[in-house]
Simulated assay, not measured.
Amino acid sequence: MQVRDAMTRDVRVANAHETIEQAAKLMAGLDAGALPVGDNNRLVGMITDRDIALRAIGEGKGPQTKVHEVMTSDVKYCFDDQEIEEVTRNMGDVQLRRLPVVDRDKRLVGILSLGDIALVTTNGSAGKALSGISRPGGEHSQSA
């Protein structure tokens, strides 16, 4: 099965120059913890609720902070024609719960989450990826 068969197609995109308050409101309205970030029709990053909590609020930045100041700019993504098994292994290896999906022209066409994978597969690949993602952390891990 290919990524395009499981991905969520209706993806909202945060603008790199909008505020984290606007991004947080969009996340709240979608009940999502992450948004792809676009600038001039290009995928330039991802912003998560964790980015807002740690890189903004945790560092004393206010709600008017721009998304591009706290987003993750090293964007990992997958292609819509890749096999889900391959992408799921990669998600576990790089410890990501969701990936933007692009076509071969690198246009954003969707987002793939572990939940999407769990809905369409019966081979346990979502669980395998989650076990890779949820590896215990370092000295300050709460799982110790």
Rank of each mutant, 00 (worst) to 15 (best):
R107C: 08
D31F: 11
S131P: 06
L96I: 15
D39G: 08
M71H: 11
F79E: 14
G132T: 04
G124D: 13
G38R: 04
V109E: 00
I111H: 03
M71N: 13
V87L: 06
G60D: 03
D103S: 07
A28N: 02
I47N: 00
A23S: 00
V87D: 01
V11Y: 00
T88R: 07
L108Q: 06
I133Q: 05
G138N: 09
G45Y: 04
R89W: 13
E69P: 01
S73V: 13
C78E: 02
N123R: 09
I52S: 04
G132S: 10
A14M: 05
L130A: 14
S125L: 14
V94F: 10
D31M: 12
V101G: 04
Q95N: 00
H140V: 09
G92S: 02
G45T: 10
T48N: 01
I111W: 05
D116L: 00
K76Y: 13
Y77D: 03
H140W: 10
R55T: 01
A56P: 14
D51H: 10
R135C: 09
G58S: 09
I84A: 02
D81V: 11
V11L: 03
D103M: 05
A118R: 05
V75R: 03
R50E: 01
G138P: 01
G124F: 06
G138W: 12
I117Q: 00
L114R: 00
V37R: 04
D74Q: 14
R104Y: 11
R89K: 15
P63T: 12
L119H: 14
R4V: 15
L112E: 00
G92E: 03
A16K: 09
L54E: 10
A56C: 12
L108E: 03
D74G: 08
I20M: 05
D93Y: 15
V44F: 06
A129V: 02
L35A: 01
D31G: 11
H17S: 12
A32W: 08
